[in-house]
Amino acid sequence: MTDIVIHTKDLTKQFGTFTAVDHISFDVQRGEIFGFLGANGAGKTTAMRMLCGLSIPTSGEGWVAGFDIATQQEDIKKHIGYMSQKFSLYEDLKVWENIRLYAGIYGMKTDEIERKTRLLLDKLHFTKECNALVKSLPLGWKQKLAFSVSIFHEPQIVFLDEPTGGVDPETRRQFWEMIYEAADRGITVFVTTHYMDEAEYCNRVSIMVDGRIDALDTPSRLKQQFNAHSMDQVFRRLARKAERSE
């Protein structure tokens, strides 16, 4: 069991009479890149918010990094990283200030922050931009920096919510290389994306339709199962039967 870092059983979230997430059950292994797919409105964000300790389930259970999502949200937050396309870094802070802020929030020591900051900037070739305001960076740079910041405190799991929206193929590839590298170090990557070709990078993929997980397997087995030549086809075959939209 020690290698399972996310476990859910019949996890459910209702808002009034609306069931946003409907009895989802799955496990994610340590070091796995797990793709969490679904159309707009399928319930991905609600499920992810519960896993990150930001929303309490209506019923069912969920464990993240060994903690109960219903009762130990603060412990979960300390052991995960989070990045989304919509919000990640503070635009009006400098590059180093953003790193300093996040590392401080996660309780890292000052000398360790300084040492790791130098390493990180060097690795990203950002040393010259250390004092630049984040808002002055191109989008692709921001996203690479945001991802690095989200795993700066070496979390067990990092949650990425549509991290590559609007990014060109070259930068997306660099981004996925960073994800591979993090997973190789044992960080579990839980990622949502609208790019079906990106689903192919994942070890396993789940597809949500109307609040339920309708398919979960490796990309190659899903393509076999749905007799499809791409993940895009798999996705469209499943999403077509969705009853609720947006």
Binding site: E162, G165, H194, R236, A239
Partner: peptide, 13 residues
């Protein structure tokens, strides 16, 4: 200008 960024594959189609 990037009309489908952030839109799911079905809506994009």
């Amino acid at each position: 200008d990037e009309p489908t960024t952030g839109v799911d594959p079905v809506s994009r189609k």
